[in-house]
């Protein structure tokens, strides 16, 4: 019993060390999403000139991917070729939310990188819709089921690997 009392501080320190060590490997920019399995937030965005806008009703009746991007966003350019490739497979429509962009900048950016989006809603600053979707940075993407419920959230660029092994299986399952 006496020995146990002397061991107690050691056990406490080891426990705290294990806790802090785990903390070293957590990516703080990935905030646990709270909107997964909740309805997509009310959305009514005007279209980027020359494109269809995005409304909540547009998300009903089919599975879709909603992607938040901006021409100012470096990682979006990195993700873009993957989105263009996905859009060519015709598996699922990708809808864009263009965050805090000037229309001319966005149009030039899409001309340069290609347009994978079936609809593009503009959300200029202060981006109430982007905040309603709980977005912390671009790019972020969501998989929406046919009832307009968010089923998956991706923080950061979609890579071919993430698409093929994580997101595409979810899309296929929701489409069944």
């Amino acid at each position: 019993m006496r020995r146990l009392v002397y061991l107690l501080p050691v056990i406490i320190v080891l426990g705290m060390a294990a806790f802090f060590y785990r903390g070293l490997h957590i990516n703080p920019s990935i905030i646990p999403p709270v909107l997964v399995n909740k309805p997509a937030p009310p959305t009514d965005l005007p279209g980027l000139p020359g494109h269809k806008g995005l409304k909540t009703a547009d998300l009903m009746g089919h599975v879709s991917v909603v992607d938040v991007f901006g021409s100012w966003c470096f990682a979006c350019a990195e993700e873009h070729p993957t989105l263009v490739a996905i859009s060519k497979t015709d598996v699922v429509p990708i809808y864009g939310i263009d965050w805090a962009d000037k229309p001319a900048d966005a149009i030039a950016w899409l001309k340069r990188h290609g347009n994978p989006y079936a609809r593009i809603g503009m959300d200029p600053s202060p981006a109430r819709t982007v905040v309603a979707w709980g977005v912390t940075g671009a790019p972020e993407s969501f998989i929406i089921d046919r009832h307009g419920i968010i089923r998956y959230k991706r923080i950061g660029p979609i890579t071919p690997d993430i698409w093929l092994h994580t997101m595409l299986p979810i899309v296929r399952e929701l489409q069944q």
């Binding site: 703080p28 920019s29 905030i31 805090a100 600053s125 202060p126 981006a127 109430r128 982007v130 905040v131 977005v135 912390t136 940075g137």
Partner: peptide, 23 residues
């Protein structure tokens, strides 16, 4: 501020912090 995390939205220059301040 969800971008800089150690700062409040009042202190942060991040675009999202500004948007949330205005909202």
């Amino acid at each position: 501020c969800l971008v800089c995390q150690g700062e409040s939205i009042e202190q942060s220059n991040a675009g999202l912090a500004k948007d949330i301040r205005v909202i």
